[in-house]
């Protein structure tokens, strides 16, 4: 399957093709989905890259396993995958807390590197630090909505809650984020007004 043609093929069709033995479909799905799952997992796990990679690999493995039974039209691959990744992250966060609360990576929003420059990477790092301070469910809803670009109904399906609950979580999450980040507007190059 040529790359240009593959761009028009849905994730669901590619997954069914892989389920029928098409390895190229698996490669295309990996290129499309792995970065998204990795980004989501990294934010959910407070920037722990190694753990985020493990979650990504495990979520994709579960996708490969479900492929032969996948029926087009029943669910969206991205929604299904984010739900799996979300559950994997939740398990790891729970274990982390029960094992050693001190081992949780501290938010880096006070790190000197984040304050020094006004470049975009610093803002991204500040956002990551602020996201880490949100409750898990609020963080998940905000990341899916504003960083992964899912719609509220898709997030509701991924998180297995109602659309109203999604709206509430994102609203509260954004309010908290604004409170954390507004104090840093000047140092991050947004001016003081």
């Amino acid at each position: 399957m040529a790359f240009d043609q593959a761009r028009d093929v849905s994730d669901e069709a590619l997954l069914v093709a892989y389920g029928n033995g098409d390895r190229e479909a698996a490669r295309l799905l990996t290129a499309r989905l792995a970065p998204r799952v990795l980004g989501f997992a990294a934010r959910m796990l407070g920037g722990d890259r190694a753990e985020a990679e493990d979650v990504t690999q495990e979520a994709m493995l579960r996708l490969w396993r479900v492929a032969p039974e996948w029926r087009q039209g029943e669910a969206k691959v991205t929604t299904w995958l984010f739900r799996v990744a979300s559950n994997l992250c939740t398990d790891r966060l729970r274990k982390r807390r029960s094992v050693d609360i001190d081992s949780v990576a501290e938010p880096e929003d006070d790190a000197p590197g984040a304050v020094a420059g006004l470049i975009e990477a610093d803002r991204a790092r500040a956002l990551e630090g602020a996201l880490a301070q949100l409750p898990d469910r609020q963080r998940e809803a905000v990341v899916l909505r504003h960083l992964e670009g899912l719609t509220n109904p898709e997030i509701a399906e991924a998180m297995e809650i109602s659309v109203e609950a999604v709206e509430s979580l994102t609203a509260r999450g954004k309010r908290t984020l604004a409170g954390i980040l507004s104090g840093r507007r000047e140092e991050l190059g947004y001016g003081s007004d």
């Binding site: 990504t56 975009e120 956002l127 602020a130």
Partner: peptide, 12 residues
């Protein structure tokens, strides 16, 4: 901030 976050997404 979200825009900056999207641009800074980790690459596998």
């Amino acid at each position: 901030f979200f825009e900056a976050g999207r641009a800074d997404a980790p690459v596998p």
